[in-house]
């Protein structure tokens, strides 16, 4: 599949060009960015990231585990401490709180791996170490469409270099 790679200096033009290409019916696009730019987050898909679900599920699991574990263990071998009820909510809230954060954080990490498709064993077609320098890359799988059309679009979108990769 012939793939065109456009190299850019700024995130703004990358986003505009990517969206123009999507408007023309090119769906196999990839953007490479050297740094986190919030404006690029929505360049290819505007749906909110699914990482939020992982955090939510982790946090809820944590809070339930925290209370369930402490209450169950206190009732499993009931020992009266300082005249407090066996299932004493205020101190167990601290455990539940810590486990909310612990499980929430670990699941968020899992979310990063799942949503970001990590680990990845192969580089994407057209990836270059330049994109971990200070340049941006926009790769377009041209398919059976006209290469010249894509190249023109990339150049019109302020790509400073365009090259063809066959993979």
């Amino acid at each position: 599949m012939p793939t065109l790679v456009g190299v850019f200096d700024q995130p703004g033009p990358v986003k505009r060009t990517a969206q123009k290409l999507q408007g023309r019916g090119f769906s196999k696009l990839e953007i490479y960015s050297p740094a986190p730019f919030l404006e690029l987050d929505d360049a290819l898909e505007s749906k909110p990231s699914r990482v939020r679900m992982f955090t939510l599920i982790g946090g809820l699991t944590g809070v339930v585990t925290g209370y369930a574990m402490t209450i169950w263990m206190a009732l499993d071998w009931p020992i009266m401490v300082a005249g407090k009820p066996f299932a004493s909510i205020p101190p167990y809230t601290i455990i539940a709180f810590e486990l909310t954060i612990l499980f929430g954080g670990l699941l968020t990490l899992l979310g990063l791996l799942a949503v970001g498709k990590l680990p990845q064993l192969r580089f994407g077609t057209g990836y270059s170490p330049r994109f971990s320098g200070e340049e941006f890359g926009l790769t377009v799988e041209v398919g059976d469409r006209d290469v010249a059309e894509v190249e023109a679009l990339l150049r019109a979108g302020e790509a400073k270099e365009v090259s063809l990769v066959d993979a």
């Binding site: 050297p34 990231s49 990482v51 990063l112």
Partner: peptide, 20 residues
């Protein structure tokens, strides 16, 4: 982990950092 800085990866990363 084979990070390439694709927009999908950065989006997940930004979210992750925010949530963490």
């Amino acid at each position: 982990l084979g990070w390439q800085g694709t927009s999908r990866q950065w989006k997940a990363h930004n979210r992750t950092v925010l949530h963490l």
